[in-house]
Computed example of a mutant assay.
Amino acid sequence: MDIKPTVDIINPVFQSTKGRLFAGTSGVLKTSSTRNAWAQLVNPLHSHVNLYVSFFALTNFSTKLVKADFVVNADPPGTPILSSDVSVLKLASNHKPVGQIFFNPHVSGSFSGGTVIGTRALSPLRTELGFRVDGRLIIEPGTNAMFFLTSRTSAESQIEFEWFESEAIF
């Protein structure tokens, strides 16, 4: 009997081979007792693709605790800044992401609308996976996912998003 080997490939690897896997970071987010910050992955309204989120990573560069609310479909305060730190993960690919990372490093007030679906306490001087979602979180056209950060003292953080884009999963 001739047995042929099989190999399991996780979906983000498969999507990367197609040039559809992207990653990017917000700028440095500066919070304090009077200032908040946020980073958001947005799928433009008429994009015609879905963003399948692989994971989020949250980094706290400070020696103080930072609180991160994970919120979907919210309107954040302040003026959004478009991150230029986004890249396709198949390095020889010329694909450009449809999804956009927006952030604001220091705002007063809170977000409006949306739904908080989780909260994380970011330990000092650590990077943590926020939620390992492996494509189960689907950001459809016109929707978004955001981390809204608060702290009691001055702190600096950064948020990383990884996602793949497709009209369908396969």
Rank of each mutant, 00 (worst) to 15 (best):
S112N: 04
T79N: 15
D75P: 00
N104K: 02
L91H: 07
P80T: 04
V42Q: 02
I169N: 01
G24Y: 04
L45G: 01
T63A: 09
I138T: 11
W38M: 09
I101M: 07
K4M: 09
R35I: 02
A39C: 12
I9H: 11
L51F: 03
S32D: 08
G109C: 02
T115V: 14
F70D: 00
I10C: 08
S112Q: 08
G24V: 02
S93V: 06
I169F: 03
F170G: 06
R120C: 03
I138G: 02
W163L: 06
V7C: 09
S151H: 11
K30E: 01
I139M: 03
L41N: 02
D2K: 15
L41H: 07
F61G: 12
T59D: 05
R152N: 10
S93W: 00
P124F: 08
F147H: 10
E156V: 00
S26P: 06
I138N: 04
K4Y: 03
T115P: 03
P77K: 13
R126A: 08
L51S: 12
H95P: 04
P44C: 06
N73T: 14
L91A: 15
K4Q: 13
Q15T: 09
P80F: 03
M1T: 09
S154D: 15
V88G: 14
F131K: 13
H46V: 08
F55C: 03
N104V: 13
G109I: 03
G113Q: 11
G130L: 08
N60A: 08
F147N: 01
P76L: 05
S108A: 10
H48G: 07
V88Y: 08
H48E: 14
S47G: 14
F103K: 10
T59V: 05
S123A: 15
P12D: 04
K18H: 03
N43E: 10
S16Q: 14
A121Q: 15
V88C: 14
S16I: 00
D85M: 15
T127Q: 10
I9W: 12
T119I: 06
I3W: 12
S83F: 13
R20T: 15
D134I: 14
I101W: 04
T119L: 06
A74H: 13
V72H: 12
A155Y: 11
I101F: 09
E160G: 05
G78R: 11
V71L: 07
N60W: 02
T63V: 10
A145H: 12
T115M: 13
F61N: 14
P80Y: 10
A155I: 00
T59H: 13
Y52H: 10
L51V: 06
H106V: 05
D8E: 08
F131Y: 14
V107F: 07
V88D: 10
Q40T: 09
I117Q: 05
P124Q: 11
K30S: 11
L129C: 09
T143H: 14
Q158L: 06
V7H: 13
G27L: 00
I101R: 09
D69R: 11
R35K: 14
T150Y: 04
T59F: 12
